[in-house]
């Protein structure tokens, strides 16, 4: 019953991973935190990410809408080869 390396890895990895995560679940947190501070802190972190990505994507959409609109002088009609699907 040749257990090749791949089988071994599939078995071992979850065991190792869970043993690392395990202590995090068990210990009673001695570090008393203030809910409000932690929750709002996490919220600001989420907002920073949301707004950076937002700025990037809105910028791209604005550029695309402005640059490739039909009435844009620079937008010379170049026929794409038909059937280019």
């Amino acid at each position: 019953m040749g257990i090749s390396l791949r089988h071994a890895v599939i078995l071992i990895v979850p065991v190792v991973v869970f043993s690392i995560i395990q202590p995090a679940f068990a210990q009673e947190s001695d570090r008393v935190i203030i809910n409000r501070v932690e929750v709002w802190g996490l919220f600001y972190k989420g907002m920073v990410i949301a707004f950076t990505i937002g700025a990037v994507i809105m910028g791209v959409i604005a550029y695309v809408v402005f640059r490739f609109r039909e009435s844009n002088p620079k937008n010379i009609p170049r026929g794409l080869p038909e059937g280019h699907q």
Partner: peptide, 22 residues
């Protein structure tokens, strides 16, 4: 990657919020 980061951050904060001090 961003989602994983946000999920981990949320998990980390929830860990403390979950059970009251002794």
């Amino acid at each position: 990657m961003l989602l994983v980061y946000l999920g981990a951050a949320a998990w980390d904060v929830e860990r403390f919020l979950d059970h009251p001090p002794k």
